[in-house]
């Protein structure tokens, strides 16, 4: 279990990005974190990844405190961040430092096959499209078989069609080993398609505002009325978090969880 206990972050310039954020995320759960800009969602993800230390509070994975990047935690960024001097195959194998070379090669080959880029194994990253590059980044993060995979707006730079493809593809890959996914996004559609639970954050300082369980089976039909309802309840909560009026009255009657007040 991934446990966040009163995680706070104040930057040296005095800006408080995150205030006492607590949440417990079950092994294998998919959690989407959504919120307006500046709500500290990326700060939170970086604290979980061990890239930036929290000012106070703790992040624990199976009772082990996380203060630095951890072998069981993988991360996918908004940009693919492939190493331009390595071939696609070498990029995917980047995190497999130890183990015999043949085993590494097999794992990479299997991952390439799995993300549908087997014929691109020897290509340079510059020869890939945006969607292909992000698929390589996903494969690179998944090959060491992390227990937790963090995703920081992973598909926001892609066009709508590619984004949908990759969302479905991510779920497909997730089903292989069922790691915990913590996804930061500003796309309500994406949150509802992927997540078991949506955490809504409120900005300045960033803190947890609301939680919405998405009780929908998979695969999810993006056009079903039920899906629409969940979307609306997330949107409503998001609007509330930003102190905006509720745009649509019947949104509150959605099947999502009741508001916390």
């Amino acid at each position: 279990m991934l446990a966040l206990d009163r995680v706070s972050k104040t930057y040296p310039n005095g800006v408080q990005a995150l205030a006492r954020f607590s949440a417990e995320i079950r092994q294998g759960e998919i959690v989407a974190i959504i919120g307006g800009s500046g709500c500290g969602k990326s700060t939170l993800l970086r604290a979980i990844a061990g890239l930036d230390r929290a000012s106070s509070g703790t992040v624990t994975l199976d009772n082990e405190a996380i203060a630095a990047p951890h072998a069981k935690i993988g991360i996918i960024f908004q940009e693919p961040r492939l190493l331009p001097w390595l071939s696609v195959a070498d990029n995917i194998g980047f995190g497999l430092a130890d183990g015999p070379a043949t085993e590494r090669r097999e794992k990479v080959a299997r991952a390439l096959e799995r993300v549908g880029l087997a014929e691109k194994a020897q290509a340079w990253p510059r020869e890939l499209s945006g969607g292909q590059a992000q698929r390589v980044a996903i494969a690179r993060a998944l090959v060491p078989q992390p227990e937790v995979l963090l995703l920081d707006e992973p598909f926001s730079a892609l066009d709508a069609f590619t984004r949908r493809d990759l969302q479905d593809h991510l779920l497909d890959l997730w089903a292989d080993t069922r790691p915990t996914l913590v996804l930061v996004t500003h796309d309500v559609d994406e949150a509802v398609v992927l997540a078991d639970r949506v955490l809504v954050m409120r900005p300045r300082p960033g803190r947890l505002f609301d939680q919405i369980e998405i009780n929908l089976g998979r695969p999810r039909d993006r056009n079903s009325p039920l899906f629409e309802n969940f979307k609306r309840s997330v949107l409503t909560s998001l609007d509330r978090s930003l102190d905006r009026g509720v745009p649509d009255r019947d949104a509150t009657q959605g099947p999502g969880q009741a508001m916390w007040w």
Binding site: A49, L51, A68, P69, H70, A71, G74, I75, F77, E79, R81, L83, W85, L86, F94, G95, A97, P144
Partner: peptide, 26 residues
């Protein structure tokens, strides 16, 4: 951002130099 990739894979100092910094500055 590239250095961060090395950090997430927990590269040691020498490994960071050899696998990230040297190729990047080449």
């Amino acid at each position: 951002k590239i250095v961060e990739v090395g950090r997430t894979f927990r590269l040691s100092g020498p490994a960071m130099i050899r696998r990230i910094l040297l190729p990047a500055v080449l």
